[in-house]
Design a protein around this nucleic acid. Structure first.
Lengths: 197, 197
DNA sequence: CCTACCGATCGGTAGG
DNA sequence: CCTACCGATCGGTAGG
């Protein structure tokens, strides 16, 4: 851990969030103390309250922003894409890409939704269900059109989404493959899950 | 939550572990207080120490037993199976099956390894790496033999394993598919990820 | 199995 | 940004 933080740092809300992202992703929400976030920033715990309203607000903003962005990604990805195979490929590619480029956010959303207070938790879970349902319907549509062949579309949709989540667990910026390359690879693997010919 | 626990229960180590499994899986290790486990059992917190040595020991036993069993499952699944496609199918099927039949254990292992103290954490992570590496080598072997076609075997192996983990997130005993049916389904989907012809 | 109690730490506030 | 401090709760122990 970096204990060489400057003795009198000037901190911003973004800086607090940045440290929270790292520590929540590494140790979990309940496993991270505000004193640890403060220490990482080189300030005392009460000073955090000049930048945030509460610990819960940090989690709230991370989860709500991420789940909202995931859904916006999806809608953008399938818009203006007439071919159903291209639509599933595009939807999967942007989801996979996000898990390479926003690893910490993705891990926190996947692990800590239960730690989020209502009503935000319900909203986040609804957005995720919405996303999974949309993926399922893409698979159904493709299967009806003879382009896919997976009648267990709900199982396949969950499997595809979770496969993309795995990226957040191992991806490294300095690895052999770029985020875009990994996303393209996973999109093709996921098409095979749906039974693309 | 069941607050109708008997006023003077007789508790066993197994009963404590059973409640811990449920609460750790629902709220996480750091999100669960021993007082909550005790309340669920209808006893006071200090009485737990007649059955366990510490909270950490509970997590330790769950994670070590599960990761050990996963590896034993794998070895049993590939033993005496000459065909490489059948080996990957069998290895995937038992892993998927475990995630339907041991949902709480699987979720805890996936979420709380970082909450486990060394040296158990290192041992558990090594067992998981071992498993992922073995899956990767199955894919490589099959690709060399012309039975699979996924040169990005490390990516595929992680993806396949994580896909199976997704089962633990949604499977219900009273759902339309049995654990065995779901495991068979996922095994076939995972073979397609590996590029099985 | 219990009551009584421990030191440590938690998130957060008062006041400057 | 700080020091001083709050009540609550944590995991765990003593002793019966």
């Amino acid at each position: 851990m970096n204990d060489a933080a400057p003795p009198r740092a000037t901190v911003s809300p973004q800086a607090v969030r940045e440290v929270a992202l790292t520590l929540f992703a590494e140790r979990g929400y309940h496993g991270t103390a505000l004193s640890e976030i403060a220490a990482e920033l080189g300030i005392r715990t009460p000073s955090l309250y000049n930048h945030i309203r509460s610990k819960q607000e940090l989690l709230h903003d991370i989860v709500i922003e991420t789940t909202t962005d995931v859904w916006a990604d999806y809608e953008r990805a399938v818009k203006d894409e007439p071919d159903v195979v291209a639509r599933l490929r595009s939807a999967t590619r942007v989801y996979a890409l996000r898990h390479a480029t926003h690893r910490r956010e993705a891990l926190i959303v996947n692990r800590e939704i239960a730690s989020l207070d209502d009503p935000a938790r319900s909203r986040a879970m609804q957005l995720r269900r919405c996303h999974a349902e949309a993926m399922k319907e893409l698979i159904d549509e493709g299967t009806k059109a003879g382009r896919f062949s997976e009648p267990a579309s709900t199982l396949a949709a969950f499997g595809i989404l979770e496969m993309c989540v795995s990226i957040a667990r191992w991806f490294r910026d300095d690895g052999p493959l770029s985020a875009e390359e990994v996303a393209a690879k996973y999109a093709e693997m996921c098409l095979r899950v749906a039974g693309a010919k």
